[in-house]
Design a binder for these strands. Sequence first.
DNA 1: ACAATGACCGTCG
DNA 2: GCGACGGCCATTG
Length: 97
Amino acid sequence: AFNQSASQPLCHVVRRVPKGRVISYGEIAKILGCPRAARQVGWAMRQSPDDIPWQRVVKADGAVAGGEHAELRRALLEAEGVGFLPDGRVDMKKYKL
DNA sequence: ACAATGACCGTCG
DNA sequence: GCGACGGCCATTG
């Protein structure tokens, strides 16, 4: 049930992620009550305002999603102190919430 | 109502 | 360790 109103709880979860940390779509979905709704999270995120720190939302394996903005968000994460592995992914062991 | 698509996840070879 | 496959829930043509 990730309708437009769902973007609110979604934002809540994203905002609760501390700076310098990341969270995966699956984790968010789980927190929202639908452990298998990772895709919907992505869908809701796409239509959500950009005022929220979406840069902290990455895939379960640490890869940064987000198509065109992916590189930009990666840069933002680096600015927050999130370390990236040589393969261009976040070190989930250290930074995953 | 059906089939295809997606800012994904977990399992299996 | 990596690539392939299916499942998941909601949106869209």
